[in-house]
Simulated scan of single mutants.
Amino acid sequence: MAFSDAQLLRVYLRAVKEAVLVSRQVFTNQDGSQGVLYLVSSDTDLDQAQLTTIYQRRWKVEKYHKSLKQNASMGKMLTTQANHFFAVLLAYGKLEVLKLKWGIGHFRLKAQVYAVGVKAMFQQLAQLSA
């Protein structure tokens, strides 16, 4: 069932007792292709703007989790590794401080830090071989 981006639908799903609110958003990707995002909420009193605002805030949390997993190695953590988890949060905090200071994202910061580290390693190896 297709509906416009401005339209909110109140629907009932078999597996859910109460009605849910569904919104459709069409967007254009960087490569020019189009994508469709369906937003769903159990709060049927929301309007389109409120539902969109909630999902924009939630997306920031998703970006936070992605960065924790990919840039601070949280994805490799086992449940018993509390020390690693603490280090992950510290690394994320440092990335946030650097992001604000330099105005660049976590992924670019990580690449730059690796490049500096690799350069220093090769300089050290050159000194050791001389």
Rank of each mutant, 00 (worst) to 15 (best):
H65R: 11
S42A: 04
N71D: 15
L13H: 10
T79L: 04
S67P: 03
A19D: 07
Q7V: 07
N83M: 14
V88W: 01
Y38W: 05
V20D: 00
Y64H: 12
V118M: 06
K94N: 13
F122W: 10
N29C: 14
A115C: 09
F86N: 13
A126I: 03
V11Q: 02
G117E: 11
F86C: 12
L78G: 14
Q70H: 14
Q123P: 04
G117A: 12
A111L: 08
Q124V: 10
Q30N: 05
V118G: 03
T44N: 00
Y92Q: 02
A87R: 11
N29S: 06
E96K: 14
N83T: 06
Q30W: 01
V118T: 09
L37Y: 03
V40P: 05
F122P: 08
L98C: 02
S42W: 07
A130I: 12
L89M: 15
W102C: 03
V26T: 08
Q34L: 13
K66H: 15
K110Y: 02
K99N: 10
S67L: 12
N83A: 11
L89C: 12
N29H: 14
R10I: 10
S4I: 06
N83K: 15
S4H: 03
A115K: 15
K110E: 12
V61T: 05
S67A: 15
L90C: 12
L13A: 15
F122Y: 13
K60G: 03
V97C: 05
S41F: 02
Q70W: 14
L9I: 14
K60R: 10
G93F: 14
S73C: 13
Y55V: 01
V22K: 02
A15T: 10
E62V: 06
F27W: 09
A111D: 09
Y38C: 00
G32N: 03
K69C: 12
A19Y: 05
G32D: 01
Q81E: 15
H106Q: 09
K76A: 10
H106P: 08
L95W: 03
K60E: 12
R58A: 11
Q112M: 13
A126L: 13
A15W: 06
A6W: 04
Q34K: 13
